[in-house]
Simulated scan of single mutants.
Amino acid sequence: MKPTLLILAAGMGSRYGGLKQLDGLGPNEEVIIEYSIYDAIRAGFGKIVFVIRKDIEEAFREKFGGKFDDKVKIEYAFQAINTPVEGISELPEREKPWGTAHAVLVAHDKINEPFAVINADDYYGISSFKAMADFLKNDCAPDHYSMIGYQLDKTLSDAGHVNRGVCEVDEAGHLTDVVERHKIQRTPNGIEYEENDGQHPLSPDALVSMNFWGFHPNVFEVTRQHFIEFVEAHRDQPRAEFYIPLVINRLINEGKIDLTVIPNAERWYGVTYQEDKPMVQEAFAKLTAEGQYPKHLWK
């Protein structure tokens, strides 16, 4: 059975100032998602599931309708601020969606096979999809997940700070912890992140998560159970977010899974800020000129 690619595309793009999921950046106005889908298809993925908001469904279908339907199966799942979850009778009022793990959870009825999760607005590199597909086809199990790990210095933006999940890995290559670090950027002292008490250094070679995960479908049920507990613990915190690493760290700490970190030397490209756009456009033009991608992805 071919694995599925779950694309988280319900973000608001507040720092970017618009719907960056659909902003054309390739030589023919291709969006970043299209390169991920192209890479996934040639790596052997058999289905794409988009997690989007209802208010952008028409724009998504207009952008992608029929473009690659003959190459891969496409499905949609919808995340709202308070998309209901079985086991919770009433969700508290919110100011924003519950976060990435909740976004995964809303796709539970679309996926029954091993699957990968990515962000819609990140470019992950050709080799990363091949490595993830190989894992999902050959090694994925109810107690064995994976993650593509990127070198921190290849994931930074020159336009401003970024947040990254910094990973700790044991000698067997298994994730032991992932800690979200905020406001990471290059400074005169090197790469640093910001905490309440000031700036702290990070190694440029540190492995970080770019939200490229490989899961067995049993993750849906454990995530649902953890979400029920999270909601009860954060009913009075309308901005609390239920992130994927919260679920993963708990499963690791409870000894329920091993998670293999697959190192990747590719450079990340993304559009956190409008100022990132020219750099990403230049990168896709270069990759196309080098023959990594055809000039017209879908012709």
Rank of each mutant, 00 (worst) to 15 (best):
V261I: 13
F230E: 07
F242Q: 08
R224H: 13
V231S: 02
L259N: 01
L259F: 11
I248V: 11
T260W: 07
P263S: 04
H226Q: 15
I244C: 05
V261L: 01
L251Q: 14
E254H: 13
T260H: 05
D236E: 15
I248S: 01
F227Y: 11
I252W: 02
R239C: 11
V261R: 05
N253D: 11
F215Y: 04
L251G: 05
L259V: 14
N218G: 09
H216D: 15
E232C: 13
R224E: 02
E266V: 06
R224I: 01
A240C: 06
W213I: 02
I244L: 03
R239Q: 09
Q225N: 12
R224V: 05
N253G: 15
R239E: 15
E254T: 10
A240N: 04
E254C: 02
E221M: 12
I252C: 05
I257A: 00
E221N: 13
Q225T: 11
F242P: 09
F227A: 05
V261F: 07
T260Q: 12
V247Q: 03
D258T: 13
V247F: 07
V231W: 12
F227M: 01
H226G: 09
E241N: 15
N264G: 06
P263Y: 06
V247H: 03
R224F: 10
E266C: 10
